[in-house]
């Protein structure tokens, strides 16, 4: 008789930041303990610093022209590919979301499915936004005149605190579909799905630097992004429910550089079940109008 095999010890993942396509630890060397909704230890997440935020903005800025310069068809394909990969790793995300948000497996499955479907929905907008939100203008003179939306540039996204995957996807996908690049501050207490998503992005066709994800204390990192002079827009959704910070304070910080600020819809984080809209895309676009004379 052979002795029974010993129970297998699982191999756990180290969760790090996602900056410029790489997974560095925080330059500060700090981590913080992430627990499940029931208080069980899940992992030590990197506790990002303002310098990590600075590096992330730099990565986002350098990736921006290339991403915006890709064809809309290409961006659509790249984003759809992300949905394909998410689908393949559903189980992992369901487990992450269920543990972090304390959902039943059934509701976690629904949330992950909705997140994947949302990703697909936004991917499809890449080559339609300009047609829906742009138009020719019949000016009173011999001029060709066309208005079309263009990406704003670098967007800082303070991701929702409660909805760690569906909420995140709902604010991330509309920002990048038109060619913006983003720096995300993940849900402070539930950061693990964001880093799992980063792993998907890293193995997909999304160019390095298009999405950068920071974990850590929202109140510590977000003000630096709101004030950062090389950030063009700010989604303050995750200020709701974050300790030590308000979205109004972030908006006030953002005013010094005339950032575009997307405010939360209500005073508490609402359900993200139906939160997909064209306006979420247009919030991070600039309408550019081009004139040219028409003459022989």
């Amino acid at each position: 008789m052979r002795a029974p095999a010993p129970a297998r010890i699982d191999v756990r993942k180290t969760y790090k930041l996602f900056i410029g396509g790489a997974f560095p630890r925080s330059e500060s060397g700090r981590t913080y303990e992430v627990t499940s909704a029931k208080g069980a230890f899940l992992a030590n997440a990197a506790q990002g610093s303002r310098k990590d935020a600075r590096d992330a903005v730099r990565a986002a800025r350098s990736a921006q022209p290339g991403w915006a310069g890709a064809t809309a068809y290409n961006r659509g394909q790249v984003l759809y590919r992300v949905a394909e990969l998410l689908e393949g790793r559903r189980a992992q995300f369901v487990a992450d979301v269920a543990a972090g948000e304390g959902l039943t497996e059934r509701r976690a499955q629904d949330a992950v499915a909705a997140a994947i479907d949302r990703w697909v929905w936004y991917a499809g907008w890449s080559d339609k936004v300009a047609q829906v939100a742009g138009n020719a203008n019949p000016v009173a003179g011999p001029y060709f005149n066309l208005s079309a939306p263009e990406p704003t540039g670098v967007v800082a996204v303070i991701a929702p605190q409660a909805s760690s995957l569906l909420g995140l996807v709902s604010v991330l996908a509309p920002a990048i579909v038109t060619g913006n690049t983003v720096v995300v501050v993940a849900s402070e207490d539930r950061p693990l799905p964001a880093i799992s998503l980063a792993e998907v992005l890293a193995t997909s066709d999304v160019p390095a630097g298009v999405v950068n994800i920071l974990t850590g204390r929202t109140a510590e990192i977000a003000p630096h992004l709101a004030k950062h002079m090389d950030v063009n827009a700010l989604d303050v959704a995750g200020a709701l429910g974050a300790d030590g910070i308000t979205w109004g304070a972030l908006e006030a910080d953002a005013a010094d550089t005339v950032k575009r600020v997307l405010r939360p819809a209500g005073d508490d984080e609402a359900s993200w079940a139906d939160a997909q809209s064209l306006n979420a895309i247009l919030a991070y676009t600039e309408t550019k109008t081009v004139w040219h004379p028409k003459g022989m």
Binding site: N137, V139, S147, T289, V290, W291
Partner: peptide
């Protein structure tokens, strides 16, 4: 990176043309 681009013209304005 500008909201209005005038090519081979400049300072044209029209009610139908967005500005900003």
């Amino acid at each position: 990176r500008a909201g209005v681009v005038w090519a081979n013209t400049f300072n044209r304005f029209d009610p139908t043309s967005p500005f900003g």
